[in-house]
Design a protein around this nucleic acid. Structure first.
Lengths: 211, 211
DNA sequence: GTATGTTCTAAATGATTGTTTGAAATTTAA
DNA sequence: TTAAATTTCAAACAATCATTTAGAACATAC
């Protein structure tokens, strides 16, 4: 067994358990026994539980930022003109799924971890999240804002949070929502079907006019 | 000091602290010392921490369901014809704020508690929430669905979760979002301004067409 | 093969958790 | 006023938590 095996086993078990139960609700004993490693391994390899939480989080958000940045580079150099709202939203989601495919990870898990990070406003995760992906975040937001020059910036900012909420909330409950749908309508939706439904909804949300 | 004072003091302190930090992150000692009551008071009056969490939750969601039901009754008896999407959304939010006014409570606090309840998919709160407001929830959803007869029911259900996500996520972070806005644009939004922005956005989201 | 540095392991540490206890204080009822 | 019932209180309880420790096991390099 190599060194990296232990670290990876811990990260995998921790990702799953954190997403399932929450950070405080998951003890190191639960994680280490699920990962089949010694209790002390977490503190040895990561230093502390808090550092493990950050590591789990970074494993998702790091590759995502890289993918999004690359994708934005590609699209900006290709088409000299401005990007549209819908193409920017498409870029966002395709970057998300591309990064998840690379790290062989679960979209629902990532969304749950994101939701938990926001749920605790006091939490240290918000700060480390801003530090880690603040630049990519800003870049994307500026581009999106440019597609809607007539919208008041404060209004626009609020609508962004509406968008984030719709995405994180629904995708992080993907499994349980699907369970309800299967019980009530006899059919469920694949993740990509949900995203295909989410994208035009977000577009409608960002424009936000009553009809 | 009457008996009910202790119970109320505990509920008030617990609401604030739970919304701020989360359920597991708030100890009974923190709550009781903030409420200025004895540590044993929680177990004496509520039985357990879990029961206190339920009680805090019910204090918000109970009156909200009553208000929403009453409001639906009033509108259905008044106008014989069907309600529109926008009027139903308006009813939802005005019921929310009416119930909060009655219980002299904070909308952001309620939204945070709601978000936390959803964040923990394993959590017992989801079950007790469905039991408590499942009937009102269903009634409202059926009415809303009737306003959009051409939309596939599964699609409609997903859009509802998009709507809930946008609402809960943004309103539960109202303070911190406003902090960012004030820093970046020099002005912030009142809660009712945000809701006025949210309502047409939700309308756009529910119809969900790209433009 | 020996030496060196890394990783693993079982056990213990001290702090914090929710909950219980039994007596004191207080309120209620007669 | 007296008796009964309710509520408060300080203290202790057992369980669990993250973290530390020191030695065993292991790998690597000379």
């Amino acid at each position: 067994m190599k060194q990296s095996d232990t670290i990876e086993k811990i990260l995998n078990a921790a990702s799953e358990l954190f997403a399932e139960r929450g950070y405080s609700e998951t003890s190191l004993r639960t994680i280490t026994s699920a990962a089949d490693v010694n209790l002390a391994a977490v503190n040895y390899h990561f230093g502390s539980k808090r550092a493990l939480i950050k590591a789990v989080f970074s494993r998702y958000i790091g590759p995502f930022c890289v993918c999004l940045n690359d994708s934005l580079d590609a699209h900006q150099s290709k088409s000299g003109d401005e990007l549209s709202v819908d193409s920017l939203i498409n870029i966002l989601f395709s970057s998300l799924f591309e990064s998840l495919k690379i790290s062989n990870a679960n979209p629902e898990q990532f969304m749950r971890l994101l939701g938990l990070a926001y749920a605790q406003s006091q939490g240290f995760l918000r700060h480390s999240m801003i530090e880690e992906y603040g630049a990519t975040y800003s870049r994307y937001m500026v581009l999106l804002k440019e597609t809607m020059p007539n919208v008041d910036p404060v209004d626009f900012y609020w609508r962004l949070f509406f968008m984030m909420g719709a995405t994180i909330f629904s995708l992080s409950s993907y499994e349980s929502i699907n369970g309800i749908l299967k019980a009530d309508f006899g059919r469920d939706s694949s993740m990509s079907e949900v995203v295909d439904l989410l994208i035009p909804s977000i577009s409608g949300l960002l424009h936000g006019t009553s009809r």
